[in-house]
Design a protein around this nucleic acid. Structure first.
Lengths: 224, 224
DNA sequence: CCTGTAATTAAGGTATGCCTTAAAACTAGA
DNA sequence: TCTAGTTTTAAGGCATACCTTAATTACAGG
């Protein structure tokens, strides 16, 4: 697999996890990559020939067992490098993703396994996402999206999507992993969630609040 | 610069150092890469447009100041990764080069500088080659080629070319950096140098003995 | 100086991975 | 069922970085 193919299987895996649907639509892939639908179709055809994906016209693509293994290898490399870059080199939180994105394509299995041991066999990356083991097993995090909280909830951030604009967004507001937010208000119609963090109020759009996961610590709201 | 361009400027730099000539011939580059001369010419034209090299027809290419800086950046990345892979991950000596070759193209300046500090600002890589500093200054090693020794010399290996077949060759014979060789015989006509190492005799062809550098510790031979 | 060899340039080709435009095939809602 | 809109396929293009074959240009030794 070359870089392009690696990016595709990884993206297909991540989008499938995010939507909960094993099949990912061609058009959605195109949108995520910023590529044309035609380009994505061509690549899907190629990945299918390599038996990395199963393609059902008008339904989408789904990773084969081989494709899933490759995707998890990339994710493993990505998250292990993030841990290294953060824990050992002290790189800024919002810079981790981009750097790991480059390194993940330049890492052999041998280096990966040694890096894993060197870092103390970490279970999660610096964005709280689980690191698959060498066999392709990955923990399913129990945390819930911030968007599913209610006014009055105290919410501890345990995990955020590894998505550059989101990291920049949170970083800019000085919001970090394990920080606690107090949900002030949830506007269901507008989709805006207002939270308090270190005395400051922040308005999170729905798509933002859906990429932040954690646990509700306590709630002042009345249970129904 | 993309990977191909990075490989070219690095190769031009290394060949210039090796030959002592600032200008590197198109045909020699082609041979080293295993590419056709035409392909090399095309890339030289491109590098010239980017002002990374100076091209004198029938003479060769020479790095510009910008090109030299880029080449040293790649060499810096390569050698720092080698130190990391060896010192921290415990990778085998002969595996370092290949792994570093991939990582060097995936490393930003920011990561490089932090890695440098993390590794304790090393002066040389695990093959004994000097690591350039962030400003592009590089030490000129004083060691002499093994091929210039004479029968009876005791020779300590301080540096070897970072060239995969050579590393495999030495590794296979269990010869490592800082080991001491006793020169048994030098056949000037045939170019074979016979050395003793840990009680075993090895015959080194000229081109091999020219890629191994070190210092003569003592000599049993009579000075002229 | 002149000719053979080496180096360069030219012309056309391949694979990869992206693009646009257009036609064809399918799905799903009215 | 039938059509509107989505999805797929087809056809042709572009850039990169390699390739081969062939023509041209320059250098250097006799």
């Amino acid at each position: 697999m070359n870089k392009a193919e690696e990016d595709y299987v990884k993206m297909i895996y991540e989008m499938a996890v995010l939507t909960g649907e094993p099949y990912v639509k061609t058009a959605d892939l195109a949108e995520q990559f910023g590529y044309s639908v035609q380009s994505v179709n061509e690549m899907i055809k190629k990945l299918h020939q390599k038996e990395l994906v199963d393609f059902r016209p008008y339904k989408g693509v789904c990773l084969t067992e081989g494709g899933r293994r490759e995707a998890l290898r990339m994710i493993r490399a990505h998250r292990l490098w993030e841990v290294f870059l953060s824990e050992r080199l002290g790189l800024a939180w919002e810079a981790l993703h981009e750097e790991a994105e480059m390194l993940e394509h330049a890492t052999s299995e041998a280096v990966l396994e040694r890096l894993y041991d060197y870092l103390g066999r970490p279970a999660v990356c610096n964005h709280g996402n689980p690191i698959p083991d060498a066999e392709g097993n990955i923990a399913r995090p129990a945390s819930r999206p911030l968007y599913e909280t209610h006014a009055g909830d105290c919410f501890r951030i345990l995990r955020v999507q590894d998505y550059k604009p989101l990291l920049a967004y949170l970083s800019q507001r000085n919001i970090k992993l394990h920080d606690v937010l107090t949900v002030h208000d949830k506007d269901h119609f507008g989709g805006i969630l207002t939270v308090e963090h270190l005395g400051l109020k922040h308005a999170f759009a729905k798509h933002i609040a859906q990429m932040v996961y954690g646990e509700v610590l306590s709630s002042t709201r009345l249970k129904k």
